[in-house]
Amino acid sequence: MTTTPHAAHGFVDEPGAGTSDKPATTPAGGRRTRRDKLLVLLATPAVLWYAVFTIGPLGAVFYIALLDWEGLLSPSTFVGLDNFTKILHDPVFWTAAKNSLIQIGVVIPVMIPLAFMLGYYLTLEPRGHHLLRVILFTPALVSLSAKAMVFLAVFAPSGALNGLLDLLHLDSLTRPWLANEATALPSVIAVDLWSGIGFTAILFSARLSSISREVYEAARIDGAGHWRRMWRIAFPMTEDYFGVLAMLQFLWVLFSSAGSVLLLTGGGPGNASTTLSFLIYDKAFTQSEVGYSQATGVLLFFVGVVGMAGIRSLFRQRY
């Protein structure tokens, strides 16, 4: 996954810088309005750019979802909610929905707590933690396609994983991991976890390092071990951040699995590893059902909103 290094970084910097430093109001008298006009002018290009290339297309999804549209270059007709009826009667959609649910249901509960614990471990500054940090950061540098090439070679029938199992005399466990109905989706999930835990752990450790040592010290004197300090002290103090990272990860997995599925399994075998995100891609660009694809996008949007609300209520949110 490489947790959108982008979004995540922004949140890291927020706690320190975001809240307190509103500019001190120093009225500059009559020149103020003229000066503010120039400021508006300076901000306009960026706002327009963002509106035209991000917000605009996003809004268009909701309209395209109502069209019958066979391929991007052919004409379209307005069909209202027909696409949605079609989707809800399509077994492929339900397979994809089930796969997405499994993917999220495994990735989030495994990744976020493990990353939190690893982040806590890093803040203790154990021996070798500098090296460990560098290693944990590496998956964030590797592109999706390079990562996919590596794992194609790892999971291939005559790849590294089967080779290793062979060496360990566990031949009975070898299989074509990506081409096997039972292991295709788990393999995709494993790649998500492989690349996601480390980076998320670094984000957690940055946040956890803001807890003062005295707090832990007091708990230690009271006889609390690391496990209790971690979950009874560090966790409640950073619960909001826990929620933010869970939410970002949730959105990332829900929407952005298309790329890794496309490169690793192509959604197969059959539809065994087709996720909703991949279905949106596949319908639009290989099956020429643009309306269907975007209607799925709309459904995904609502799933995203509901999921976010769920995560928010699970972890008390302060922002």
């Binding site: 706002v47 996003l58 790329g259 949106i280 639009a284």
Partner: peptide, 30 residues
């Protein structure tokens, strides 16, 4: 700037953290 528009713009950009770019791929192609 201290105006309301600026605060509104900032929130508008902050919203971007929650928008997975993949969601708008098809309209972007159009």
């Amino acid at each position: 700037s201290r105006g309301r528009i600026a605060a509104w713009c900032e929130r508008f950009f902050a919203l971007g953290f929650l928008i997975p770019s993949f969601a708008a791929l098809v309209p972007t192609v159009l």
